[in-house]
Amino acid sequence: MLLIHCPYCAEERPEIEFRHAGEAHIARPDAMADLSEEAFQGYFFIRDNRKGEVFERWRHIHGCGRFFNAVRNTITDKFLATYEAGKPKPDLDALKAQKGTSA
């Protein structure tokens, strides 16, 4: 069971309070009605599925109820950061460097 830092509760909480909500930073296109099939495929189906650091969404569903974003390494399952929904992607290199020195 992972331990996840909720940026709203400002605490690490056990994974079973959370629900994973897929890849982060996939914005819903503005002109949905005019979206091509290709663009829809890219938006709705194609996923990074990276081996390494991924940006992903979680919801603290059995906690504060908020959606937020996380950077996690999918090889080690370690979190590099969590941050509030709507905030921009943090700089990955800086995060990695920071984790590298503190570990």
Binding site: R19, R28, I61, G65, F67, A85, G86
Partner: peptide, 12 residues
């Protein structure tokens, strides 16, 4: 959950 998702992240 679905409604909260849209409300919080798409239409905040």
């Amino acid at each position: 959950h679905h409604m909260e998702d849209y409300l919080q992240t798409e239409f905040p």
